[in-house]
């Protein structure tokens, strides 16, 4: 377990920002790193509990995953789907070119 004060550093923040496509101004990075370390450090207190014999808990409600039958009862709403798109054409979303 790393020291809880230095769980993330600035290079880690840079990496997370890039993966999340977030543009974080250089001046904010130091503060953000501190904030993240504080949050993660707080949560890291949970590591003090021995959970080696405890199954991961998926839900506290006791509900099971509901299943639906294989029926087509949605779709045909392309106008609605495209309504918020900044640009569309003949039913397609139109975005800046993303070809590799």
């Amino acid at each position: 377990m790393p020291n809880k004060d230095t769980i993330v550093d600035v290079p880690t923040v840079n990496k997370i920002a890039r993966l999340s496509r977030l543009d974080i101004p250089e001046v904010n990075k130091e503060n953000l790193t501190n904030d993240l370390n504080n949050i993660l450090g707080f949560v890291a207190q949970l590591d003090e509990v021995d959970t080696s014999n405890v199954e991961p808990l998926a839900s506290v409600t006791g509900h099971k995953l509901p299943l639906r039958s294989d029926d087509v009862n949605d779709g045909n709403i392309e106008d609605l789907v495209l309504k918020n798109a900044p640009e569309s054409s003949s039913g397609f979303f139109v975005v800046p070119k993303v070809i590799e």
Partner: peptide
Amino acid sequence: SGASASFGSEANRNVSLVDA
């Protein structure tokens, strides 16, 4: 989602708000 999984439909016809 309950949108159709069929092939060859008009663009964005088989899209529900879940898929979008």
